[in-house]
Amino acid sequence: MSLTAAYAALATGLLVWAMLVRKLRVKPWEAQLAGEVELASSLPAAPAARIGLWVFLAVVTALFGLFISAYLMRMGHLHAEGLEMGDWRPVAEPAILWVNTLVLILASVVMQWARVAAAHSRIERMRLALMIGGALTLVFLAGQINGWRTLSATQYASPRDPALAFFYVLTVVHALHLLGGLYVWNRIFRRLGQANRSQSPARMAQVRLSVELCTVYWHYLLLVWLVLFVLLLST
């Protein structure tokens, strides 16, 4: 983990630095003379919720990145000390994970459909797509539960087995994130009801934004799942 994380952090730092360097070169004690120019725009660049979501995704990335680092380090732990693979016995992943993956991809596609419908103010279509997207996600979660049960039934399941323990931890943490997403997804319907009752354009804008952010979150969790799935399959 050490060097990979070190270089990743350094690279991120340099990237952020490069992005910010123009803003950070301003000399504020001089810039105040030209201050009125900067007042032209009074609106924030993006809604708070969108920025908040991206910051949150950075946190989730750190979380899964660290879990994956721990996974790789634990896997190679005894190996590095010349004990071949140590106690690491690869898990035979249940076949249903392939189906689950397909379902989650479909959920993501349908959520994207909802997002496009929302952008074009086709509210009924948006509602339908959202419902299908949520239902597919529930199917995915049910499939994961099925996978956990299959694994605990078919393999010699001991918590001492590190690969198996990691399999459960990673998939459960991912599933919990999806459950959190479903909580927000559920709130969209309540907001939609409020917007319909009040006929307020601002409230409808909020619904559109929620759909957009939900979709981004779904795509992101799909990406996380694909990374995790590849990692689990390949080790």
Binding site: L24, L39, P44, A48, V55
Partner: peptide
């Protein structure tokens, strides 16, 4: 997010 999004007019980062 508040620092990034909710600064008042004229409050640049610097």
């Amino acid at each position: 997010t508040t620092v990034l999004q909710a600064r008042c007019r004229g409050m640049t980062l610097m």
